[in-house]
């Protein structure tokens, strides 16, 4: 948000404010999803809410929310490690069904990626492809 007279906030406060906004939008998203029985994770609705808020308020480059979001997204891969480690509980299943699991996973991924990539390309204005 544009601040003319206010001195810049210290880094510790920026971090706190940013995290508050992210958690706040998540909280509101969860409330909306659960109250109205929408079959989407609350965080996705929170993401849409934050997007609208950013579009309306247009914060400056030193915004707390932008700083916190960039910091968290830089380490997005960290947050997927615990679910991936779940493989230790399924080693026997993966070994016994290796062909359907690995084969279907890789082939289905490749077909999906190419189909979506081609579809978007075809629907873009001709001169941009």
């Amino acid at each position: 948000m544009t601040s003319r007279a206010r001195p810049p906030r210290p880094a510790s406060v920026v971090f706190l404010d940013g995290l508050l906004w992210l958690l706040g939008f998540w909280f509101v998203g969860e409330l909306v999803v659960r109250t109205f029985g929408i079959p989407v994770p609350g965080a996705v609705i929170g993401m849409l809410g934050l997007f609208v808020a950013l579009q309306v308020r247009r914060p400056g480059p030193r915004s707390a929310t932008l700083a916190a979001a960039d910091g968290l997204l830089a380490h997005l891969q960290l947050l997927f490690i615990p679910a991936g480690v779940g493989i230790v509980a399924f080693l026997a299943v993966v070994r016994d069904d290796a062909i359907p699991i690995v084969g279907a996973l890789v082939a289905s991924w490749a077909v999906g990626l190419v189909v979506v990539g081609w579809t978007v390309t075809l629907l873009l204005p001709r001169r941009e492809r």
């Binding site: 995290l19 992210l22 958690l23 939008f25 998540w26 998203g29 994770p41 609350g42 965080a43 996705v44 929170g46 993401m47 849409l48 809410g49 934050l50 997007f51 950013l54 579009q55 929310t65 932008l66 916190a68 979001a69 960039d70 968290l72 997204l73 997005l76 960290l78 947050l79 997927f80 490690i81 615990p82 679910a83 480690v85 779940g86 230790v88 509980a89």
Partner: peptide
């Protein structure tokens, strides 16, 4: 066991919530 590990793992996975909300920023 995975169950013992996930006491810590769940704490980190919790942050997927705010990280998903944060994806609004690059989109913005």
């Amino acid at each position: 066991s995975y169950g013992e590990y996930s006491r810590g793992g769940d704490l980190l996975a919790f942050l997927l919530g705010p990280a998903t909300v944060a994806l609004a920023v690059p989109l913005h």
